[in-house]
């Protein structure tokens, strides 16, 4: 277990270095930081002085090393627009995105397992056909279209639910959440459903096909030959084997979900990281863009490691000793 974690940690460091290098190198491409900071009115000489002072004339590698040293202390630069440390800005926006991802994950878990399992066990049932048809449609509708459609129906036409913002939030343990108030939940409903709408159909299909394959397996037939109750045959023998591929793919999907928050948050003007990122791009707020990429990269690395650990715990054939058996 320890060796496994160590190996993962090594990989994570390499991946983070690559991300930070790539992110940092785009900094030069996105406009002149000096102009962003002091405006156009300063004379060319003062500019040159300032450049020298800020180390902008240093070689790339030296600048990168300075950036890395700062990053390790949690200093990812200062946002041009907010005039505050970029990391602070992101940490302010993080809870909104976490609310959104949690709520979407809740929908996905709530529906994908029962629907997928039901469709696998009763492939000819009308409900299975309906679910499979809907999931084909769900996969084919881009997430921003789902969002627009929901807004049009529930906000513009029916006027039942708000179309933008987080509504009322409360703070617990320094985490500002909308999950605990009625108003916050009302605001969360449409964004979370549209975010879930991309991933949910994928999960339903995957669980169904993996479960169908498991139900055909010889060990399931043997479980029946042992006289086990059908419920146990399905939920313990077939479903537990279904979980393995679902966990692996599910981990990747969480990464995809973070990317899709950019779209969802933009449509709903949800004050999270994704919306902030798009605004930062439009404002050429380079430090904020770089900081966002690094934070998201870190989230990916952490999620992937957790997924691998969970996979190892569920799959007896993988010993957490560093190498998959």
């Amino acid at each position: 277990m320890f060796a496994f974690l160590l190996r993962r940690l090594g990989q994570a460091v390499v991946v983070m270095l690559v991300i930070s290098l790539l992110s940092f190198s785009i900094q030069d491409e996105l406009g002149d930081p000096l102009r962003e900071l002091v405006g156009q009115s300063v004379s060319e000489e003062t500019r040159e002085e300032l450049r020298e002072e800020m180390g902008l004339n240093d070689p790339f590698l030296a600048q990168y090393m300075r950036f890395l040293r700062g990053a390790l202390r949690g200093d990812l630069g200062v946002s041009y627009f907010f005039k505050r440390p970029a990391l602070d800005v992101i940490l302010d926006k993080l809870p909104a995105t976490i609310d959104l991802v949690l709520a979407a994950t809740f929908w996905i878990l709530l529906f994908s397992v029962p629907v997928g399992v039901f469709a696998a066990v009763n492939p000819r049932h009308w409900f299975s056909n309906l679910a499979m048809g809907l999931s084909a449609v769900g996969i084919s509708v881009p997430v921003f279209l789902t969002a627009i459609f929901l807004i049009y129906l529930f906000s513009v036409e029916l006027g039942w639910l708000p179309s933008y913002g987080r509504g009322e939030t409360t703070e617990i343990f320094g985490w500002e959440t909308g999950l605990l108030t009625r108003d916050g939940l009302r605001h969360l409903l449409l964004p979370s459903i549209s975010l879930a709408s991309v991933i949910l159909p994928l999960f339903v299909r995957m669980i169904r096909s993996e479960m169908m394959e498991a139900l055909e397996a010889e060990y399931v037939r043997f479980a029946r030959a042992k006289g086990l109750r059908e419920g146990r045959v399905r939920m313990v023998h077939a479903f537990k084997n279904t979980l393995l591929p679902v966990i692996t793919v599910g981990g990747v999907q969480i990464g995809i979900m973070v990317a899709y928050t950019i779209l969802t948050e933009t449509v709903f003007q949800w004050p999270g990281m994704g919306f902030m990122f798009l605004e930062a791009i439009n404002r050429a707020d380079t430090p904020l863009i770089v900081a966002y990429l690094i934070v998201v990269g870190l989230i990916f690395v952490i999620v992937n490691t957790v997924v691998d650990i969970v996979y190892g715990l569920v799959n007896p054939a993988v010993k957490l000793t560093g190498k998959p058996a």
């Binding site: 397996a217 010889e218 060990y219 037939r221 043997f222 479980a223 030959a225 042992k226 313990v236 023998h237 537990k240 084997n241 393995l244 569920v314 799959n315 007896p316 054939a317």
Partner: peptide, 16 residues
Amino acid sequence: SMIFQDPMVTLNPVLT
């Protein structure tokens, strides 16, 4: 009781 042909696939891989 039954005994199946291929013991490599008869037992469930994820249960002890």
